[in-house]
Structures are given as structure tokens and as C-alpha cells.
Write a protein that binds this DNA or RNA. Structure first.
Lengths: 294, 294
DNA sequence: AGAATAGTTCAGTCTTGCTTCATTAATTTG
DNA sequence: CAAATTAATGAAGCAAGACTGAACTATTCT
């Protein structure tokens, strides 16, 4: 095996192909967009590197020798491969292509970014999007273990190692009382509560806010599903704290008592990972299409 | 079509392959024989040119992203193709390969270079050699019209357009008398003559030399074949002037009277043509193996 | 012969790639 | 936990390479 390969450049191979396809060097030079001088020198360099002479003189012109087909074939092949690669890169860069594994919390997937997501899919039909909807904690775990590429979730209380986040939007969490009252009354009378499960990011935000107000937090039911929590409130099981976009969504919207707190939604990526091109585009789309926020 | 392709170099693609096949950049750098810094910068440049990020961070090391197979495949493919090309070039350069159409005058093919030619064939078994033996004039015509690549012939009286020659050897032409005498006697008594045909290069040399000595040149027989001329001398038909190597070759060698002149044998190529690699080697072999000369 | 054409060579400039040395950051060790 | 080690990157300097415009050579056209 020849230990070191000749360091041919795509440029030189393009020159060769151009010369093979053109009548004169000058035309070939124009075709590749350089001066005839550059073409001549480039081909001389190519010849030197391959180590085999490629041209015969014919009067004042130079013509490819008949026995250099192997070189010309090689040049055409490599140029074609490179064109393919360039196409792949362009598609990849534009996010039109490949696979994007996306994680979203339900509020994002449905209330806030459903429309933006639908539109993004329509604009990138060749992009295979795998959407996984779940609680923020699950999504972040999936992110760090590499099973999704980008996530939209509630901002973690403290920065998570291996994950970088970027603020996306802020949304209000409101108190909803079982009797549909508009004024919550003295906070001593609130509760009991129907909340997101222990460990859920929004549960943490909620509990912190309630405690700060001196409200005892007695929890009588838990669910990750806001619809379930809503229904429990309607059934009179207890009070709840929910994102307004979810609690007041659809036919059977709840009536809010009072804004209790806010939660921040962020986009999250693995720290080390190069940004997924389609992921970057999607984040932009989400920012542009966020329906609420502040 | 992407109008301008990224100007990737083989070097950069080798870097990528090396990195894919090594655990660390440092090992990969060693493998391709550059400093880690050069490798790092080269890969960064490659990334920039392709326009797609290729690596993820993993602690303090960088690893190829899973979705860059297309790039890696491209790199492997192009590197492999280039290795093939390098192999082809090496074979071509070494003359081990391809076709060489060779023209020789009979004295060269048989007396002077027969052995060298046999040996050259043995050393380059893959090289297809087409040998054409004929008078110098025929060979030179064949050379200019492209039907042979290189010729060994008598030096033309004046340089021939489109042909470049290089001296190979000089050989003596001697006078041979029909009665086998060693001393030619007064030149007025020489002849009549049995010579190469009009127009043959050696005929020209011979006639010029005889005329300079004031010898009348009466020709009674002609042939391109030296054996035929020898036989005519033996039969007493006339005197001849022949290359000593041919006249005194084999069983029935003639006895020379006197050296009359010399002729120069040359190797000849088309002026425009790039030197045929195998042809160059053969010329070297002939020079090394010339049995006579001065 | 003179003009036009194809290609090369040359000189100058700018870019690229490599090496060495220094630096950052993650990991291991005492 | 600080110090040492290791992986990779960054900066400065230098040599090689690539491009342009102009001068030049050789060939062809008129």
C-alpha cells in the first residue's frame, strides 16, 4: 500500500473534468471561474502530484492523453460524490432532512406550540420528526441519555449537568377553586389540593409559591395530566394550581381565582452536542409562534 | 446543482477516516503523521467547508456524531478511490503496465539490443509490448502518425519536424569486398556496389562517405535486408558497405576491408507527446545494455 | 509577414496548512 | 481537595500553494 496518498484537491479534479468537457483551456477556466493561468498551473500541479503526465501537445493546444481515462474517471467520480455530499450537507443544514427526536411537555405540544409544530412539519416534509410528550423530568432524562435531540420543558430549579437550556416563554399558573369562585378569599381557607405529582417541576414551583403565602399544602390527589386535575376540580375534589393555558382551554374551561406564580418553559439540548440543524430551526419556529408569554 | 463544490482535500478526508478509526485525536494524528494540533485544525476546516458539524463533545474528548455517516462514507470512498488511483499511477510510472508500441530497425532489434529487450520484457510481464521492425524511414513515419510510441532508428540527416531524437549509440560501417580481401586497394578499383535502397538513411550516409573519397557509386543491387546484401557480397555480385555488427554476425561473417563511416542510432519520440513512462524506462535499459558504441 | 489565438511563465500577493508553544478543560492521583 | 495528567484547541511564525495580471512563446489564420 502506498503509505501516503497524493493530496489531490477537489478543485484540481474539477479543473480536469472541465478541461475534458471543454474544447480549450480558456473555456474550461471560465467554466470553473478562474483565470487560464490558474487552470494551467493547477493542472500542472495535479500532474505533478499524480506523477503521471496527462496531456499531449497538439499544435498549440493540449489534449488529454488517451491513456489517462483512469485519472479522468477518478476525477468525475470524486467530483460527483462531492456534489452529492454537498447536497446532503445543504439539506441537513436547512433541516429539510434526517431525523429530529423531539420531546415536549403537553402544554407546549398542545396549547402553546401545536400550531407552530404542525406548520414546521408541513414545511419540512422530508424531516422525520419523532415527538415524545411527557413530564419535564422524563424529557430531561431522555435528553441526557441521548434518546431525544431537543426538548421543550419547564425550567429546572437548578441547572442540570450536561444540559443547556434557553428561555422560551413564561406562563402563568393560576389557582382554581372547586366552586368556581373568582375571589379566593383568605388563604387559610384554601385547599385541599389536587396537584401535579411530587417531583414534577411545576409541582415544585406551585408548592414553593403556596408555602410562601403561608398556605398549608394538603394534597388529596395527583396526576401528570392537567385534564384529570381539571376534572377533579370540577368534581369538587379540591383546589388546584394549573397553567392557565391548560385550565382554560376548550369547552369546559375552569374559572380562575388568582394568578399564583409563573413557570418558565425552556428549550433544552445536550451541552456537548453540536446543535441539531433542524432542532435549531424548530426552536426559532417555536419562539416565533409562541402564543403566550411575557 | 450547487454551483461551487466545497474544496475538500484528500488530506482532510484522511483525517476524518483516521479519527473514525482511532480512539483519540492524538492517535489519529500519529497515524496520519501530523501533530494533534494540525489534525484538530484540519478537521475544523473540513467541518467549516462541509458546513455541518461532525462531532459531539463527550467529556474532554470529541466523538463523531452518529448522523454523519454520509460524510464518513464519502471520506472512506474517496480515500479508497485515491489509493486505487495512486496504485495505478505507480504502476504506470514504473512501466509495469499498459501498452508500449515500439519500433526498431533490425540491427537494433537483433544485434544491439536483442538481449536488453528480452530482459526488459521479462522484468515487465504486465506490459504489452508491440514491436515493429522496419527501416528507419518507415518507423519515423509510424511515429509521427501516432502508430508507435517510441522508435530506435538511424539518425535522420536533418531534424524531422514533430520528432525529437536522442543519441543512443554510434556504430561503424565497413566496406566489404566480394573476394574477402583485407586491404581495399586504391579506391578507384572499388565497386560496383550492393547497398541499402535509395532513401534509406544508411544509404545516404554510405553514398556521402564514398563520394567524399572520390569513389564512383555504381549500384547493381539493393535491399533493406543486410543478410541479403551479405549473401550478394559472398556470391561476388559486388562490394557493400554494412554495419559491422550485422556483416560480421553469426556463422558466415564477412571479413571487413576498412571502416568507411559511422552511423548514429537514436531513440525517437513525438515532440508533443508526454514521454511514455515505459518508453523512458526502455530507453534507459537500451542505453545501459548497448553492446557496441563509442 | 502580421495579427490573432492557445497556452505558459513570471512576479507579486494572499491564503492555507503545519509546527511549536501555550492554554483551557476534564479526569485522575496523591 | 489540590496537583498532575491528558485531550483538545488557540496563537504566532513560517513555508508552500493558489490566484491574478502581464509578458512571453508557439501556432494558426489572413
Amino acid at each position: 500500500m502506498p503509505q501516503s496518498l497524493p493530496d489531490l484537491s477537489i478543485r484540481q479534479l474539477e479543473y480536469l473534468v472541465a478541461v475534458a468537457d471543454s474544447d480549450t483551456f480558456a473555456l474550461a477556466a471560465e467554466q470553473v471561474g478562474v483565470s487560464p493561468s490558474a487552470l494551467s498551473q493547477g493542472l500542472a500541479e495535479l500532474e505533478r502530484r499524480v506523477g503521471v503526465s496527462l496531456f499531449d501537445r497538439e499544435g498549440r493546444r493540449r489534449v488529454l492523453r488517451s491513456d489517462t481515462e483512469p485519472v479522468l474517471d477518478h476525477a468525475r467520480q470524486v467530483v460527483a460524490l462531492t456534489a452529492d455530499l454537498a447536497g446532503w450537507a445543504r439539506r441537513t443544514r436547512s433541516g429539510d432532512h434526517g431525523r429530529l427526536r423531539l420531546g415536549m411537555i403537553d402544554a407546549s405540544a398542545v396549547q402553546h406550540h401545536g400550531e407552530a409544530l404542525r406548520q414546521f412539519r408541513a414545511e419540512h416534509p422530508e424531516l422525520r420528526i419523532h415527538l415524545r410528550v411527557g413530564p419535564s423530568g422524563d424529557l430531561l432524562r431522555a435528553l441526557v441519555d441521548g434518546s431525544i435531540d431537543v426538548a421543550v420543558c419547564v425550567e429546572p430549579a437548578e441547572p442540570l449537568r450536561g444540559v443547556t437550556t434557553e428561555a422560551l416563554m413564561t406562563e402563568d399558573l393560576a389557582i382554581y377553586a372547586p366552586d368556581g369562585r373568582r375571589r379566593p378569599g383568605p388563604s387559610a381557607g384554601w385547599g385541599p389540593w389536587v396537584l401535579f405529582p411530587r417531583g414534577a417541576h411545576t409541582r415544585t414551583v406551585t408548592e414553593t409559591a403556596l408555602r410562601r403565602r403561608g398556605v398549608p399544602v394538603e394534597v388529596v390527589a395527583e396526576s401528570h395530566q392537567p385534564e384529570v386535575l381539571c376534572e377533579m376540580v370540577r368534581l369538587g375534589l379540591g383546589w388546584s394550581v394549573l397553567p392557565v393555558a391548560q385550565a382554560e382551554w376548550g369547552e369546559q374551561a375552569l374559572v380562575r381565582c388568582e394568578i399564583l406564580a409563573r413557570r418558565r418553559l425552556v428549550t433544552a439540548r445536550r451541552s456537548g452536542a453540536a446543535p441539531h440543524p433542524a432542532g435549531v430551526l424548530l426552536e426559532q419556529a417555536l419562539r416565533a409562534g409562541s402564543t403566550a408569554g411575557s
